[in-house]
Design a protein around this nucleic acid. Sequence first.
DNA 1: GAGGGTAACGCAAACGTTGTCGTGTTGAAA
DNA 2: TTTCAACACGACAACGTTTGCGTTACCCTC
Lengths: 340, 340
Amino acid sequence: MKRKVTLKQIARELDVSISTVSKSLRNSPEISEDTKLKVQAFAKLYNYRPNNIALSLKNKKTKTIGIIIPEIVHHFFATVISGIEQVANENGYNVIVCLSNESFDKEVINMEMLATGSTDGFIMSLSKETQQKKDFHHIEEVINQGMPVVMFDRITNDVLCDKVIIDDQRAAYEAVDFLIAKQFKNVALVTTVDYVSVGKLRTDGYVNALRDHDLPVEDDMIVKIEDIENCASKIEKLLLEKKPDAIFAVNELFAVTSIKLATKMGIRVPEDLSVIGFTDGIISQFSSPSITTVSQNGIKMGGRAAQMLIDRLELEEENEQYTTELIETHLVERESTSTL
Amino acid sequence: MKRKVTLKQIARELDVSISTVSKSLRNSPEISEDTKLKVQAFAKLYNYRPNNIALSLKNKKTKTIGIIIPEIVHHFFATVISGIEQVANENGYNVIVCLSNESFDKEVINMEMLATGSTDGFIMSLSKETQQKKDFHHIEEVINQGMPVVMFDRITNDVLCDKVIIDDQRAAYEAVDFLIAKQFKNVALVTTVDYVSVGKLRTDGYVNALRDHDLPVEDDMIVKIEDIENCASKIEKLLLEKKPDAIFAVNELFAVTSIKLATKMGIRVPEDLSVIGFTDGIISQFSSPSITTVSQNGIKMGGRAAQMLIDRLELEEENEQYTTELIETHLVERESTSTL
DNA sequence: GAGGGTAACGCAAACGTTGTCGTGTTGAAA
DNA sequence: TTTCAACACGACAACGTTTGCGTTACCCTC
């Protein structure tokens, strides 16, 4: 087993100083050609690579981005990571991933952990608990320490930082508008509880779309789901009592669940009921019928977030101007909406 | 903006030496109670946290695990990461994720990148290209440098290290056996090309199951898919010409694609055709009909891999004894197999 | 031969931490 | 009064790098 070779070892072997070795490898004009060649050859032979940790300590830069997200077994978050990783990689950055599992405490612990030197900045999406508690001191803190933070998807306006989101309200509006244009009169909504920021915004979009078309907004047509495990009865009740001709669901899971329940109740999709979901993930593509959905490009979102963070990291002067970037969405039409 | 406080700053403020501060915070008996309390109070006030990078450099341990996988937008890999992250976190480790995108070169670059001080060890699953080229010098190299590697799922026997896999062959055997027990006589196989290790093993399991039941193994009943985009014609041909009464697919995507194509051709699932997939992911759960599948617990797999790596990292003496651990699988029966 | 210029290299500091060892002061025992 | 232990703390090295600056030795010029 041959351990990693260091400048010191090369210096000793070649009987020169450490500085000479370092300068030779960085091709400094201070060093004679002879020595440079000798050192470079030796370094190549022993496959010398500068130690990242030592560099990080010296430069006070880790070239590492911390990602903190609620969960990773989730198509959208996975695509965002993928987008981040790609841009990060192109810029010589690594990504270190921490999961909050929707827990406020874990989010705090993870941030503090990574903030003590491990990363140069953060890209994060808030956990449900954090959104509920509205406690963002851990985020304020790292920002105060000079570490840039970029928030995406589940954000808060209470923290000043760069953000990347989709225009949830507008996307929802357009989805509902699409349904109304198809002459559906009883469009129901299956959404999350209000403290989930994106759920709230999509709900708002739904309401606005109905209002703008002078359609009634009935509370009974809106199902707010807290826990996916126990949502069946609520949706069944909706289908049974309100007999909607279309459903807008604020995520894939709600959409596919609605379809499954409807099918079980003898309601055909899309003949008797049209359904639009949100997030163009695996489920929408592969379920039967495949689901018409609002596509939010996670790769692009992650990529933009990473680029914003890196831009800020590599800007030497502080820039107090924060921006919120909107990633465009579009409706992917599939089988779950009738074509009439 | 208050930057992170260091030992040096505390020392200066309190007019003591750096060593005294360090020792006070680590509660050394060398230091008087008075001084300790004073320092600790000050440190708490300024929220002192030891710098991870400096610690890593000093201890030659980063408390970080490198994960290299082909892709992350993939349910199984996401669950494995989730499992790794959990165990890592419990043991005070962070995970840094790199994606090879199935590319050999990227896999090599990522490994070399992380190997120069960034991580203590690796957990990885080989890229397709690497499996095809059978070039593992980058892995051998980091092992030679004393960094432990744990491989999972897509492994190779050409490298000596710890491994975590499922018994692909046995799992496939049992799935096919299950079909045969249901009196299906024409069980087809939709699999990958042979160089994908798990595909090959699952193919072997299929073949063995048929042989053991004295059923013929026909080449025409086996479809090997290289590229998911252009697989439709092959599967359609199989369905049309061979009219199988059951299909065993070596992954979710192949299973759901087969079902979709069959349905389009008027073949009802499960009435006319039973289908079993592999990997219990989102697709199997939510497609219609939901898919009977071999469940491989990614969380458990990742957890075991992480534990094996950490055990080896925290063992001071070298242990040349490598183990390959099998994670049990089980068949999840759903709607895509007829119950007769 | 004295002075100055220059090529080629080494020293040392710095990043933040830990731990070994050395050092000064105090008090008590001989 | 001397000696010695205990106590409380500081100096320093080390981890691996980079870099500004100091230090040689040599050669050229006048």
